[in-house]
Simulated scan of single mutants.
Amino acid sequence: MGRKLLAYEKKDTWIDRLCGVSKLIFFICWSVTSMMTYDTRILLVMLVLSLVIFKISKTSWSQVGGVFKFILFFLCINIIAIYLFSPAEGVRIYGTETVLLGSGHYALRAEQLFYEFNIILKYFTVVPSIFIFIVTTNPSEFAASMNRVGIGYNAGYAVALALRYIPDIQSDFHKIRNAQMARGIEMSKKGRLFDRIKASTAIIFPLVFTSMDRIETISTAMELRSFGKNKKRTWYMARPLKRNDFITIVVSVLFMVVALAITFADGSRFWNPFM
């Protein structure tokens, strides 16, 4: 079995050497900027930076490829749904109408294409940062980072457990899948798609019961150790902030402030090239 999807993998890059707090602050600033702005110029800069950072992080496609295809599928549905339910949204936002093809309510307009292009950019700026953050941050360190920025350690520990469950569930899935194939059930690419989907549904119940058993074991262990009794706790994986961490935090905050200042300079978060 190859690398697991969205599983933390320790590597020797400057991103991995950053403290979880600095990576969390970068991720928050990056996400807020991407969500708030519809300035295509800023989104294009963020897209380029995302791809560069993704390359530097040495994140393998096998770690994120399956999830990326899943996100891409829903992105396509989102784009189509926007056009079907609001084909003139771009006209309303930008205040002009440039018909490229057709007529009537579903005429193809330049403003609508530009608006949906910005939505695609927003996806492609945030998704790489999510992948980088998950695969380069130890779940326990992530929980410690959340606690250091003011989030309760119960919530942080819950997130850490969820991230740790991702590779565990994948391992259980492959074990059950291999057991099914050993019994003669064809689940490889050689079988027909419908048969593979039907066979895969048979894995759901064993996978759910296995996960529930693991949850019961962990919750019992936490209860025996009086988890949650105290208001504060220490973290084994917590790391002190170093020079590169401070640089990352300062640059992230400055980038967000400058990007949002440019975005709202004219009173709107939409950059309008049609005026």
Rank of each mutant, 00 (worst) to 15 (best):
G2N: 13
G2H: 08
R3C: 06
L6V: 14
W14R: 00
D16K: 05
L18D: 13
G20S: 12
G20A: 09
G20K: 07
S22K: 02
L24S: 08
I25E: 07
F27C: 10
C29N: 05
S34D: 06
S34G: 14
T37V: 05
T40Q: 08
T40A: 07
I42D: 06
I42M: 04
L49I: 15
S50D: 04
V52R: 08
S60K: 04
S60P: 00
S60V: 03
Q63Y: 09
G66L: 13
G66E: 13
I71C: 07
F73A: 14
I77M: 06
A81K: 03
I82R: 08
Y83N: 03
A88W: 03
V91D: 07
I93R: 06
G95Q: 10
E97S: 12
L101A: 00
Y106K: 07
R109T: 12
F114K: 05
Y115L: 09
E116I: 14
F117L: 14
N118G: 15
L121P: 08
I130W: 09
I132M: 11
F133R: 03
V135N: 11
T136P: 07
S140E: 11
A143T: 03
A144T: 07
A144K: 01
A144W: 04
A144L: 02
R148W: 04
R148I: 14
Y153G: 15
A155Y: 12
G156H: 12
Y157R: 10
A160M: 08
L161G: 15
A162G: 13
L163D: 05
L163A: 14
I166K: 11
I169H: 11
Q170G: 13
Q170C: 08
S171M: 03
D172N: 04
F173S: 12
H174T: 12
Q180M: 14
A182H: 11
I185G: 08
I185A: 07
S188Q: 09
K190A: 08
F194C: 02
R196P: 00
R196F: 01
R196D: 02
A199N: 15
T201S: 11
A202M: 06
I203N: 12
I203A: 10
F205E: 00
V208C: 15
D213Q: 11
R214T: 08
R214Y: 02
I218W: 08
S219Y: 09
A221K: 02
L224W: 03
R225M: 04
R225D: 06
R225C: 07
F227R: 03
G228A: 06
K231L: 13
T234H: 07
T234I: 15
W235E: 01
Y236S: 00
K242P: 05
V250P: 08
V251S: 12
V253W: 02
F255G: 13
V258I: 15
F264A: 10
A265C: 12
D266T: 15
R269P: 14
R269T: 06
R269Y: 11
R269Q: 10
F270D: 02
W271D: 00
N272P: 11
F274C: 07
